[in-house]
Simulated scan of single mutants.
Amino acid sequence: MKISTSQLLNELKNKTQQHLQYAEMLLRKTEDELNFRISADSWSVLECLEHLNRYGEFYIPEISRKISSSVTSSQLTFKPGILGNYFAKTMLPKEKINKMKTLKAMNPIHSQLNKSVIDEFIRQQKQMLELLEKAGHIDLEKTKTGISISKWISLKLGDTFRFVIYHNERHIMQAGKVLKNI
């Protein structure tokens, strides 16, 4: 599968803009609504966003460093890597979200959270939009990033963007399902 680089970046910018708008809407909810959980072992809306913030704390600086140090120039098309494509596709939300285990450090369950979590998520989404804009000037295949679960594996920057943004989408959908149960 090959995709136009500009088409990929535009799709990812649009998704990120939607995530940003969703988070801004959440600011109008009460903290009780945002901390509501469907069951004792499920995440609240704030826990969904806190989980994403924790991943953002790793990926945003990593992506930023790699973009800043890249000496490549943009290419017309992007071809996902085998591993990166697999990771990205597993994050895509499905009709019935398939549960996945999360690393203990990334699991915010039963954290004491307030709306500052949303403010941080909004800040990170704005940073992601800036990074997507900058990424239009470099090669998304040759520029590689580390991943949060192993220092031995690196992914093409285009796959890293896809993974992070699809992961955001997955948990935004999860948060939406929680809100429907209030």
Score class of each variant (00 low, 15 high):
Y86W: 10
L140Y: 04
K96T: 15
I109L: 13
S73M: 10
R54K: 15
L92D: 14
N107G: 12
I153H: 05
L83K: 11
P108D: 09
P108M: 06
S111T: 13
K134Q: 11
I63C: 11
H110N: 13
N98E: 10
S73C: 10
I149V: 14
M106K: 15
K79M: 12
I138N: 07
A88N: 09
G136T: 09
Y55S: 12
Y59S: 12
G136M: 04
P93I: 02
E120M: 11
Q125I: 03
E120G: 10
E62S: 13
A135I: 06
Q125C: 07
A88E: 06
E141F: 00
L129N: 02
L131K: 01
K66E: 15
K101Q: 09
V71T: 15
T143W: 00
D159A: 04
H137N: 04
L49N: 12
R123H: 06
N107D: 15
I109S: 09
I63A: 09
E130L: 04
H137S: 06
K101M: 07
L83Y: 07
N107E: 09
I122L: 00
E133N: 04
K104C: 04
G158T: 08
L92T: 15
S111L: 05
E133I: 00
G136C: 05
E62Q: 15
L140S: 10
F78T: 15
I153S: 08
F87Q: 08
I97T: 13
I147F: 01
K66T: 13
K126G: 09
L140N: 12
I153T: 11
T77I: 08
I82H: 07
T90A: 02
I153G: 10
M100C: 05
T145H: 00
L129E: 01
S154N: 14
G81W: 03
P93C: 05
Y59I: 14
V164M: 08
E62D: 15
F161C: 04
A88S: 14
M128E: 01
R162P: 07
K142N: 06
S154Y: 05
R65C: 13
T90R: 04
L132H: 03
Y86E: 05
I122H: 00
L131T: 02
I109W: 02
E141L: 00
K151P: 11
F78W: 13
G81S: 14
K89V: 14
F58R: 07
K66H: 15
R162M: 07
I165H: 09
I165V: 12
V164I: 10
I165A: 07
N53R: 09
L129M: 01
S73L: 09
H51A: 05
P80C: 04
I147K: 00
G56K: 11
F58K: 07
I118P: 02
I63F: 13
I118H: 01
K156Y: 06
L92Q: 15
T90C: 03
L157Q: 04
N98F: 01
